[in-house]
Amino acid sequence: MNLAHYLGLLHKAEVDLAAAYRAIGEAHMDEPDVFYDCEKFAAQCDRHAERLQPFADRYGEEADDEPDRLHSELFTGTREGGLGLLRDLHDLYLMAAECDISWTLVGQAGQGARDTDLMEVVTGCEGETAMQMAWLRTRMKHAAPQALVVS
């Protein structure tokens, strides 16, 4: 069963996203909404990763070694200024999208595996990830005209 690979992928994506939220929030402390919301979302990602861990452990026993190339590198550090904020939020959006589609696929697999416990976790978390993406989208749409057109 390859589900473990996707659980690992998702787990790592949530851990990475939490770290990126924290780094970007702190880099943009002069944007209080970004700072506070990134803190909040980082805590959500922590919880997601915690809730995934038992399933990753359980399915991991039945799996081959996790292929490294499943992971992607989307975030390499924070930037400054209006354009920098936009680019940082853009990175977060892509990282959240990685989580979002992974939740969908893990949810599908959970159905195939008839694993109601896993499906419950997916249901509890995927909505939060979707809302993180909606927030990032809202915030970027606000920021883009000023950052890209007004100099």
């Binding site: 909404d33 919301d37 909040k40 809302m131 909606a134 927030w135 989208r137 809202t138 749409k141």
Partner: peptide, 9 residues
């Protein structure tokens, strides 16, 4: 909006 985050619907 999503009231907790302010994300626009």
């Amino acid at each position: 909006h999503d009231i907790p985050t302010g994300a626009a619907h």
